[in-house]
Design a protein around this nucleic acid. Structure first.
Lengths: 249, 249
DNA sequence: AGTCCTTTAGGTAAATCTGACCATAAGTCC
DNA sequence: GGACTTATGGTCAGATTTACCTAAAGGACT
């Protein structure tokens, strides 16, 4: 076999799939949408939602389709971005499957109905996966970790945290997104000051909302800004955690 | 045909490729390695180096192999990271080709010899592509733009700028990387202070280098730190550019 | 040697930003 | 009303940034 031919021939049983890391914040915790697999391999185990890319279908379109099928939410209302491509030869026992992972998030979504394939979908706290209570099929735990690191980094210097909030929202709602994603408490006063001074992050709607308890809070909707200048660093909080760690050791 | 079967069947003539955006800084300008295509389609036009992923080959391994073939540089010495996956159905006239783009960069490399395929490789200033002097085959201009935005962002909060420098290097060498990638001049004194205060960014080698003119500069090598805390923002420079823009309008 | 030129190295003062903390406002619950 | 809770805004010391300034260390030239 000539080298040229070998390089041109696609590998046997090659397929391209998309997998979705769909995050939301519920009850103050970051949660991820997982399905219980209805088919082999890994039948009955937890996995990220996903599926094969169809003939002639763009990658992003396949991701939006799977997102709609799994969450019942229309395309435009959730933030969706490409995360990473995974293609280790042995990652799927069915053959050579290249998976393009996408990262999606939105406000606390209605509990998803069982998807079009007969598998049940559930919101699971990310911490349950990280501490080993739940194991995922394929290399999906690696994908989830990569998605978590991406979203933790993204909310530092973009305004996507607001995409987790159902409009209208309060500053406290937005702060709880950061606290859930980073896993650290933030000072309400300082957080508010930083958000308000970032032009175009949130725009006041002019109304107030009375919570169950406490002073009513002003309501906002998402602004036009996409990047945070200056960034909203988690460094201070992390330095605090590291200091705590040292005390313990 | 049942829906399940349709979803499982891979598209016709599916293939997976890797494309490389290889950057370096030469003569104070950011340059990218482009090849002149020797085969159809787009024969004779400029394109990013790349090739098909072989049977059983991991994506990163394919990228490293292409990098070695095109630059003659061994794997470990250049920084290599995955950029993005491109899969628009019509992006390649030969059929459905999913391309995983990788981003690589290193110090001013020897002018690459013609690769193993008969196509010539050249360093081209990125600006020549951005201002339309050179057009690229396929969707490679989009890939290049994405790679440029990635590297501009990465040097803000990681230490990868040092990967552009041949060791040992001076603080001025490192500063010129930032200036070339961001396209803005930086204050030498303030830049030095920020770099030196970031633990593990650069470590002094204890020697000095006499340039053609001026005071000898201390020499450094890359440190162990991967992230910059605090980040080295381009905001000040950008604010300056924006102010200039406003004056002009 | 002495002067000029260039680049590195390091310092300073004003402005800005940050983090910790306090005070007040505006509701609910009893 | 009084206790409690959350929102909002302010203060203040310390850190950081920015725009400069000054000195150091060479080479080139006269």
């Amino acid at each position: 076999m000539s080298k040229a031919v070998r390089r041109r021939r696609p590998p046997a049983s090659l397929a391209v799939a998309v997998d979705l890391v769909i995050f939301t914040v519920r009850n103050g915790r970051l949660q991820v949408l997982l399905i219980e697999r209805g088919n082999l391999p890994y039948r009955g185990e937890a996995a990220l939602p996903g599926g094969f890319v169809r003939d002639g279908e763009a990658l992003g379109a396949a991701a939006r389709r799977e997102l709609r099928e799994e969450t019942g939410v229309g395309g435009g209302s959730l933030h969706l971005e490409q995360l990473h491509a995974y293609g280790e030869p042995g990652r799927d026992p069915r053959g050579r499957i290249i998976s393009i992972a996408y990262l999606a998030f939105g406000p606390d979504l209605p509990v998803p109905q069982a998807g079009t394939d007969a598998s049940a979908a559930h919101w699971i706290p990310v911490s349950s996966v990280l501490d080993g209570q739940i194991t995922l099929a394929f290399d999906h735990e690696e994908i989830l970790r990569d998605g978590l690191e991406r979203v933790r980094s993204q909310i530092e210097h973009t305004t996507i945290a607001a995409a987790f909030c159902k409009e209208p929202f309060t500053i406290a709602d937005l702060r709880q997104i950061y606290e859930a994603v980073w896993g650290v408490p933030l000072d309400p006063s300082n957080f508010r000051r930083k958000v308000m001074k970032t032009e175009g992050f949130v725009v006041p709607i002019g109304e107030r909302r009375s919570p169950d308890i406490g002073r009513p809070a002003a309501l906002f909707r998402r602004g036009l800004a996409k990047t945070l200048t200056p960034p909203l660093t988690r460094l201070g909080s992390i330095a605090q955690l590291l200091a705590d760690d040292e005390k313990l050791t």
